[in-house]
Design a protein around this nucleic acid. Structure first.
Lengths: 225, 225
DNA sequence: TCCCACCTTTACACGATCTTTATAGTCGCT
DNA sequence: AGCGACTATAAAGATCGTGTAAAGGTGGGA
């Protein structure tokens, strides 16, 4: 999942933002002053940085200037000022977006999502259709067919099958599947995989498409075209 | 290569934009007030004009109005105001796009590229009419018919249906739809999509045209002609 | 100004789907 | 063959997602 670095010295702001970002599944790291912010940016390699303009030690503009020498990470500036000069300076040294305090947390989340969309869009159209001897899977349409018979799968079932099909011939453990399908933030029983996989098998009709590797996991078997 | 004219009286903004456009290979010319902006537009014949709303001598709206009498060059308005009225006025007198300051230089570059793409495609409205087995949609006229029965849709309903129809067969998430229909600057509830989509379905009459993909989004199903 | 059309939010009900749990079945090893 | 461990499956309860109606808000046009 995407990584967000918050650089701000006001704990209340940091906590607020964190509280909104965590549930969205983002990995959040924080720094409360300029120098540690820079270090964190280097070590953590975030996808988006939320950067306060007013910071102890080194102000946001300074951070941004230095950051820009080594990276083109997406930076959203946070400022209490509404003064035009600040914005202009911020954008001049390379900020990508700007939010003035007080801001709506929802708006901030939306902007972060927009940023990530912009960043990730170049890779959008990967593997539109997975075609095998018996099974065909249109990822964009989320439709599956086996021997030209359309199969109706739920969201999780589709994602599960997709994860396996994208790794045809290789065993995926339950853990790996949980990670790919449920995302990192699942804390329930690992056996859910079994259950859903059973449903997938049943719906696919063909029991040879997915094989069990006892003690390890599951493997998708159909031959690619 | 494409020619861009920047009309803005703030040197910092002009420099910023220039700094981003030059490396992309654009030919950039600048003007710092209204009258010289107009002259430059005539002499330079740019492909895209970035026009500040607040200008000494003659404001951006005035420039745009005059410009439109003699040319249909692609104009992107720049404004510090976020007021809706400005936007509306700008678009009414013929702006093609709108960016509010502070803006992300990357976003601006992206918009310019989009503008050029639109200009350079043979016909401005690439898909003037979307035709399917049951539904027909005239994008320019904003008219829709199902089995030759004209359907009356509101602005949002039309845009929503259009976004889906243009991506026939693929699932669009609520987020994607919000982005396409409402633009990046919507921070409200996501469920608004459901409501409008419900209206569209009701008006279309045919429940098979748009299917729900539970947990993911919606998909337009009609076959293209 | 008032009115009307439209957009947005909210609430609720229904159904689909997910998760857990329990039990039966299967596999591999000795 | 027998044992232990792992897996398949069914069933039930909990949860989540969607459709829809209704209310409030907004802005444009008469």
């Amino acid at each position: 999942m995407a990584k967000i670095l918050i650089v701000d010295d006001e704990p209340s702001i940091v906590n607020l933002i964190t509280a909104y970002l965590k549930p969205e599944g983002y990995e959040v790291l924080t720094a409360s002053d300029g120098p540690s912010g820079l270090k964190a940016a280097r070590a953590f390699k975030p996808d988006v940085i939320l950067l306060d303009v007013m910071l102890p030690g080194m102000d946001g503009i300074e951070i941004l200037t230095r950051l820009r020498r080594e990276s083109d990470v997406y930076v959203i500036m946070l400022t209490a000022k509404t003064e035009e000069t600040d914005k202009v300076v911020g954008l001049t040294v390379g900020a990508d977006d700007y939010v003035t305090k007080p801001f709506s947390p929802r708006e901030l989340v939306a902007r972060i999502k927009a940023a990530l969309r912009r960043i990730q869009s170049p890779v959008a159209g990967v593997g539109e259709v997975l075609s095998f001897r018996h099974m065909r899977m249109d990822v964009a349409a989320r439709q599956v067919s086996v021997d030209d018979q359309p199969i109706d799968l739920t969201a999780i079932e589709f994602d599960l099958l997709r994860a396996l099909a994208e790794n045809r011939g290789r065993v995926l453990t339950r853990e790996q599947l949980l990670d790919k399908v449920w995302g990192g933030s699942y804390f329930g029983e690992m056996r859910v995989v079994d259950v859903h996989l059973g449903h997938v098998r049943q719906k696919l009709g063909n029991p040879d498409l997915i094989s069990t590797v006892r003690g390890v996991g599951y493997r998708f078997e159909d031959e690619p075209l």
